[in-house]
Simulated scan of single mutants.
Amino acid sequence: MRLATWNILHGRTHADPAVDEDRFRRAIGDLDADVLALQEVDRGQSRSGHIDLTAVAAEAMGATASRFVPTVIGDPARPWRPAGDDDLDATADAYGIALLSRYPVLRWHVHRLPPAPMFRAPVVDPETHRVVWLRDEPRAIVAATIRTPHGVWTIASAHLTFVQGTNAQQLRHGMRWLRTLPGPRVLMGDLNLPPGMARRVARGRLLARGATYPSHRPLVQLDHVLSADQLPPSRQARAPRPAFSDHLPVVVDF
């Protein structure tokens, strides 16, 4: 069984905003994941050619079940509003996280996390070249209780804030929620925390080590696969270096 997580930067490279659907499809296929967590996922966004990236990824990996959870409606670099559970079927202007599985999903679970309060960051709009002040986005965790070859597991995808302190709170609250779901449980995603901090806050074990960001010259690991439960023996698998995103994927085999 292969688990993988990847912050896909909505399918673009750091230098080129164009999204190539075929390139994205090949990269997902190359991971050959049985359960795949994705972050920074677009659905119906003009910046990514109105592609449903979750649907493309599901087809590329042969997933039998998938769930996209929007956290924002609108472009995060421009005006947006927080997404709620009423937006789970949104087909336009949606941005968030996804979880995909080749194995049967018995139940889906969604947990929403508040953004950092009173936070503003200056960002240059790539089209107008003007500085805009962005507030922190709301975050979410999507989990699936899955019938795997190793029994029933609950596996989750998360993308936490980069605001220090708030990301640790989000991870702590997320792990508390995850522990209420059927075990064993695995959390995957871009946690925006270094390994030691992620391990301590989650009170769990990291299943993969190695720098993941920035992808062209990785210096720090922000993307993790972790669990606080007893699991079968695992090993970190070598992940291909994809031709897009500013993060590297993380792959673990059981």
Rank of each mutant, 00 (worst) to 15 (best):
Q164V: 13
E127C: 01
F162I: 11
H159P: 11
V152M: 09
F162N: 07
R147Y: 00
H159L: 11
L134V: 10
I141Q: 09
V124Y: 06
P138F: 08
R147M: 03
H150F: 07
P126C: 10
W153P: 00
A156P: 11
R130K: 14
I146C: 03
H159S: 11
V131W: 02
V152G: 02
P138C: 02
F162T: 13
P126N: 08
V124R: 12
H150R: 14
D136G: 03
F162G: 05
I141H: 04
G151F: 05
S157C: 03
P149S: 12
P149M: 13
V152A: 00
D136K: 08
I141G: 00
T145M: 03
P138T: 12
T161I: 11
E127N: 13
V163L: 09
V123W: 15
P126Q: 06
S157P: 10
V132P: 00
I146S: 04
P122V: 03
H150I: 02
D125N: 12
A121Y: 14
T148S: 13
T145F: 05
A158T: 09
I141Y: 00
A158M: 06
V124N: 01
R120C: 08
R147N: 14
P126A: 05
R139K: 14
I146N: 03
R135Y: 01
H159T: 01
D125F: 08
V142G: 01
W153C: 02
H159A: 03
G165M: 12
G151A: 12
I141A: 14
R120E: 15
V152I: 15
D136Q: 05
S157W: 06
T154Q: 02
H150M: 11
R135T: 15
E137K: 15
D136S: 15
T128R: 00
S157V: 00
A144V: 12
V124M: 14
V123T: 08
P149F: 09
D125Q: 02
R135M: 05
T154M: 05
G165D: 09
L160C: 11
P126V: 09
R130V: 04
P126F: 04
I146H: 08
P122S: 06
R120S: 15
R139C: 01
R130P: 02
P138Y: 07
D125Y: 08
A140F: 01
T145V: 11
R135P: 00
R120G: 14
R139P: 01
A156E: 07
W133A: 10
A143L: 01
W133C: 03
R130E: 15
D125I: 06
S157K: 02
T128W: 01
L134M: 02
V163E: 13
